[in-house]
């Protein structure tokens, strides 16, 4: 069983997302330790991209800040190498395909293996195109984590059958960002996946409050929160570490 799958055995998982290098690589490293201490079960690190087409304004700006600070894919690998001297928490990259493709798929995945990145989420690599990356992921022991969306319907079984790590359930149409109200019939989505696969399901897009997290955690195996955390980093910059710790702790406690 992969390290990611195992994480979901300790109750409902809380999965925070931050953009790597926002506002700088040193702060990202500190945030990883703080979030782990606060109870995060798995951490998603975004590789900053010039044109993050699935992101709302909050994470889009984080991408811009990280790139402005000069963050590169190699900086993230180096940082994770340092993290691995102190922490064993499951880490997952969220990245658009182009940074992986231009780095070289094989070279990128070997680097993931070397520094122990446990999984990869690529929002612009759907089921039909995934083989050019997913097959090599297997060789390197990196879980290729698929997404399912409110519009996926009968595609869910096909996607879930070949899933690894966990399944990222997109809660709403549109881009990432905080929403007051999530209307999608998430339990139907999750049930369709569960019918064909034992891969854990985590819900993301739009979640910000402990109440939302608690409610949604009943429908799946974990919740993912990005924009709400990135917003704190936007406001406090390098000083965000304590506030992010408090927020993650509050969120994790709400789903225990």
């Amino acid at each position: 069983m992969s390290k990611i799958k195992k994480t979901f055995e300790n109750g409902k998982a809380f999965i925070p997302f931050i953009t790597g290098g926002d506002p700088n690589i040193e702060t990202t490293e500190k945030l990883i330790y703080a979030m782990e201490k606060a109870g995060a079960d798995l951490i998603e690190i975004g590789i900053p991209f010039s044109d993050p087409a699935a992101e709302g304004p909050v994470i889009q700006l984080a991408n811009e800040r990280a790139l402005l600070a000069g963050t590169t894919t190699d900086d993230l690998f180096d940082m994770i190498k340092r993290v691995r001297e102190k922490s064993n928490i499951p880490l997952v990259f969220l990245t658009y395909y182009n940074p992986v493709y231009t780095y070289g798929v094989k070279r990128f995945l070997e680097k993931c293996k070397e520094v122990e990145v446990d999984g990869i989420i690529v929002p612009d690599l759907p089921y039909e195109e995934k083989d050019e990356l997913a097959i090599q992921c297997k060789d390197c022991g990196v879980d290729f984590i698929p997404l399912i969306a409110p519009t996926s319907n009968d595609r869910i079984s096909m996607i879930a059958k070949e899933s690894e790590g966990f399944i990222y359930c997109v809660s709403s149409l549109g881009v990432t960002g905080i929403r007051d109200d999530i209307k999608t019939d998430i339990s139907t989505m999750v049930n369709r996946a569960k019918a064909v696969s034992d891969t854990p399901c985590a819900i993301g897009f739009g979640i910000a409050t402990p109440e939302q997290a608690k409610e949604l955690s009943h429908l799946a195996d974990g919740v993912i929160v990005g924009s709400a955390i990135v917003k704190i980093i936007e406001e406090k910059g390098e000083q965000a570490v304590d506030s992010v710790f408090d927020y993650v702790k509050k969120m994790k406690d709400s789903i225990r």
């Binding site: 089921y127 195109e129 399912i148 969306a149 996926s152």
Partner: peptide
């Protein structure tokens, strides 16, 4: 695969849009 011009082309889009 469909929609290819040599290795170029394809459908590199979010799952939300696939259907």
């Amino acid at each position: 695969k469909k929609g290819r011009f040599n290795q170029y082309g394809g459908q590199y889009i979010p799952e939300t849009i696939m259907n």
